[in-house]
Design a binder for these strands. Sequence first.
DNA 1: GGTTGGCACTCGGGCATCGCGAGTGCCAGC
DNA 2: GCTGGCACTCGCGATGCCCGAGTGCCAACC
Lengths: 338, 338
Amino acid sequence: MLSERRLEVLRAIVQDYVGTEEPVGSKALTERHNLGVSPATVRNDMAVLEDEGFIAQPHTSAGRIPTDKGYRLFVDRLAGVKPLSSPERRAIQNFLDGAVDLDDVVGRTVRLLAQLTRQVAVVQYPSLTRSTVRHVELLSLAPARLMLVLITDTGRVEQRMVDCPAPFGETSVADLRARLNSRVVGRRFTDVPQLVQDLPESFEAEDRGTVSTVLATLLETLVEETEERLMIGGTANLTRFGHDFPLTIRPVLEALEEQVVLLKLLGEAKDSAMTVRIGHENAHEGLNSTSVVAVGYGSGDEAVAKLGVVGPTRMDYPGTMGAVRAVARYVGQILAES
Amino acid sequence: MLSERRLEVLRAIVQDYVGTEEPVGSKALTERHNLGVSPATVRNDMAVLEDEGFIAQPHTSAGRIPTDKGYRLFVDRLAGVKPLSSPERRAIQNFLDGAVDLDDVVGRTVRLLAQLTRQVAVVQYPSLTRSTVRHVELLSLAPARLMLVLITDTGRVEQRMVDCPAPFGETSVADLRARLNSRVVGRRFTDVPQLVQDLPESFEAEDRGTVSTVLATLLETLVEETEERLMIGGTANLTRFGHDFPLTIRPVLEALEEQVVLLKLLGEAKDSAMTVRIGHENAHEGLNSTSVVAVGYGSGDEAVAKLGVVGPTRMDYPGTMGAVRAVARYVGQILAES
DNA sequence: GGTTGGCACTCGGGCATCGCGAGTGCCAGC
DNA sequence: GCTGGCACTCGCGATGCCCGAGTGCCAACC
């Protein structure tokens, strides 16, 4: 078990390294933090910390830098979440309040988060999985062609064309629309399949084919659109990483372009709790030298999607976590209002 | 006026430089292209080309590299547009054919273009300005709350909430929906305002307020959504730029994040014709060392939006132009079909 | 035992030096 | 107008050197 002071030394190392981006030595440490002991003592502590794998030297006779394990300990036990200043909070609220629709909310959130943390921001669109249906609309475009529009409680709208096997009259359209809505409005996506299962039977034989087709399309939309979309921003901040660019930045940009990777990344986080994945804790190789701070957000109690930032392992964890949490909270509010 | 051979020398320089990324000297030139003259002659030609500002030396006693002006001449007079191979064409078509909705089409197009050109791809969503209305839907969510859904011929769907000044019955909703559609379906957005101008008058006094509100929201949507959205991809390709990264890549990433800048960039291009803006021809400073190749695409004859790529001035212009043109063409087809 | 000052040692980064070679401009000759 | 020759330039990479920050260890001290 590490003594109190050694933890203190680790904390100091992390803080200094995050600030200066340079390996930190024993002398500099004692000068900047009054630990009450001499550099020699700190050196001994550092040797222990290195043995335990919390810090490492890039090369002999250089200062120490935290390892992933070191950051992990720092995040788990040494760092709190730094709350934002109240001007910052106000700025967030003002900025987000101006949004006109869902796209705008997400867009603004990304920009806000990127600016606040000076890192790459990732915001997932509210998932349809946990959403409920606000309305299903059915429009007749041609005798045998319908348009199906699905509106969710999070303000998302999806539409699909449906080619009917047989002409489908206006009254039938209205009928189906009404029955469909009476069954699914306010219900969860996951519940919809069983709720509409027996619907074709209640129609005339000639219309059953069309009704089935419409339902199939609806279910397909629910499934298909459950795969989530997301928006990223602040990639220019990647250039602040280090000076050994090409190698560092490349794989990160590549990873960021693969939505699947990002979705998995965010998805791994447990529900609404804040998750921090450090360096090699990220499954994806390209992100081995980055940390991901993510948290769920939602219009109610439940998280409907995640948002977070991707930055160098050498990041200001307390500040970043504070910003991420605050933004998630406000976005949740905005969504609940609309 | 430059002699035929000098133009040939310029072409050779551009081609070699694009291929090798290194300043090209007189000797190497004569070895790789059989110009039928000696290095000494080429040196004289190069001196002239340099005087005229088409090429430059990074430093004394190094080879020459093309200037923006040199690339311009190359693009205008020396280079054709390289058509894609037929396997490539087939691949494009297959890839795009799998798209399920507009978002998907745009997303696939971006990825395709980025992959094909190995550069940063930018695709603008089909503009609403030139679009026509396919359908307007009006749903009653609560006695005094409506949802307005607008569907365009390019498959885009926009929706807005409308809070009515007074309760609005179902029959009135149906009435308004029908009249609205009979007037605007198939018409251009720009024509809509006058087409619906006198609509409130034909309603009962008690409903006029609501009708006006709905119309106001509709017009607002038309205007608001005329400001275009776009999608970018392939930013990882920026890392192939040069080896002097941070300085080069940073401003480009920043510019790419500002949608306004990009929209202006694409917008500057004349209608559907292919435009190439080289280096300093780009108004935005961050893009001074990049070239933009853009072209309009559309579902019919007219361009409804632009797409293009952003890459280093040192790019394979014929190949890039070929890819951009081909992709634009196929996307146009896809949109026309749906 | 933990802490401290002292000391020899290590090693990377920065800087000046140097030689190589690609490339140039110019000139005289064809 | 083209060509071969030639002297010159200059950036780049390799080499060697020094400096200083930082370390590990040890003996002394509390």
